[in-house]
Simulated scan of single mutants.
Amino acid sequence: MRASPGIRGGQTAADAALAAFDVTRYAATRNQVLPESDRGASRLSPYIRHGLLGLREVWAAAAGPASDVSKFRDELLWQEYARHLYARVGMDLHRNLRFDVAWSGEFAPEAWPRQMACIDWAVSSLERDGWLVNQSRMWLASQYSVRSGAGWAAGQEYFHRQLLDGSRAANLLGWQWTVGAGTGKPYGFARWQVERRAPELCAACPLNQHCPIQDFPPDSHPLPVPEPSPRLVRDDDLAATRGPTAVVSRSIPQSVVLTVESLGDADPALLAHPTLPVVFIFDEPALVKLQLSSKRLIFFVQTLQDLATRREVIVHLGDPRDITSRLRAAITWAPVPSFAKYVDIAAELHPWPWLAEPHARSVKSFSAWRNNLVQPM
């Protein structure tokens, strides 16, 4: 078992990371890969993904030059868009949303040629640290699917196993947009991006004089999928997408169950019951299926250890349906399909703290979703 060397789990670590983040020059440097000292990326994503930092909290904490604050908040809105989209279309996000590109097949590690310094560095960083700058995530996704022709679903699954911020919503959406399944315009990974964002990789690459990505890949124009989900255009069940808007109480809770979507001290159910024991269930059937990296599991353990300095924490390994049904637990609703297992067995359901309320109009693109927000951000 090996932890991420640079990102530790827990509310204490999350609060420290947010306090230390300086948004100045974020717009210009968020995609810088190397040297690390020049990176402007926040590294807050693992804490945001697991609810240790809420989007509202991070939004409010952003202070600095207007252009940098605006760009940073755009990225927070992208995270919120991913959550809205996943809450609405569910498992359809695992398939091509709008344009027909290769997506099925077994994981193909050869689609990431390790003799390329940029690819070798990015894959090694992913496997060692469990985190990558967005730019290098796009390099890997584009190389895997656009250049190598492998089905993107297996590539994103490998990301999900390794990334500390491995959110189904954000990860699936990122791959869809990079490979062109969401926009019809694949991201054209080429040497130019590496020389601009990580020049030392090209300088040391054994293929420097024979670069296989010297030029952009040929333009491709994937055809629209024959029957895209009608839920991309409208939501006929907004209540299901949004979740409860007020506390749903069935009986007096005797515990609080935290899920991987919401592990922070500000979890609504946790705040509502400050004296109840806190329960976390390592979902054994899901762990067997997903085969998450040790880095991800240790991040959870570190988070629970940190919480245990403030609250009584009880940890189980097993099937959450069986265990939760015996607990009379308060739980915060989460905008993911897997939360369905808790809906009917929770003693009390608390609303999800959205940054922006979901709407019933188009979510075909980020701009369409944003333009249709009830409260413009």
Rank of each mutant, 00 (worst) to 15 (best):
A246L: 09
G10A: 15
I331S: 08
I323P: 00
A190Q: 07
D319H: 14
F72P: 00
H359M: 06
W352V: 00
D165R: 11
N171G: 15
I48H: 06
R83M: 12
D92K: 12
E195C: 12
K185Y: 12
S42V: 07
A269T: 03
M1C: 06
P358W: 08
D319M: 12
V146G: 02
E312R: 12
T275E: 10
R88E: 14
S136N: 04
S148P: 00
R191W: 04
D38T: 00
P320R: 13
A20F: 05
I323H: 12
S251Q: 09
T259I: 04
G10N: 03
A346S: 07
A330V: 03
I213K: 02
L77E: 03
W131A: 05
G130S: 01
E348L: 06
T24M: 08
V278C: 03
V89K: 13
P230Y: 13
E57N: 04
E110V: 14
V248I: 08
S67W: 04
A240T: 04
C202Y: 13
R8D: 01
P268A: 03
A17E: 09
I213P: 02
I345Q: 03
H160E: 03
Q32R: 03
L327M: 11
G6Q: 14
Q79A: 12
M138Y: 10
L93W: 05
T303P: 00
L271A: 06
D322E: 15
Y158I: 04
R88S: 10
I7K: 08
P186Q: 11
S249R: 11
R43Q: 13
L97A: 08
V260L: 10
K185C: 08
P376M: 06
V260I: 09
K295Y: 09
L276T: 03
L270W: 10
V260Y: 07
L263F: 02
W352L: 01
V225I: 13
L53W: 02
V315P: 13
V257T: 03
T275V: 10
A60V: 11
A27S: 14
S136A: 08
L18K: 04
M1D: 07
D306G: 01
R197V: 03
L126A: 01
P113I: 15
A240W: 08
A198M: 10
V363P: 02
N31E: 05
Y86Q: 05
G51E: 02
S125A: 12
E157T: 12
A20S: 09
R370V: 02
S338N: 09
R191T: 01
H273V: 01
L53C: 05
Y47S: 00
N371Q: 11
P253G: 02
W121Y: 15
D215K: 05
L93R: 06
P230T: 09
V247A: 01
S294R: 09
D306I: 04
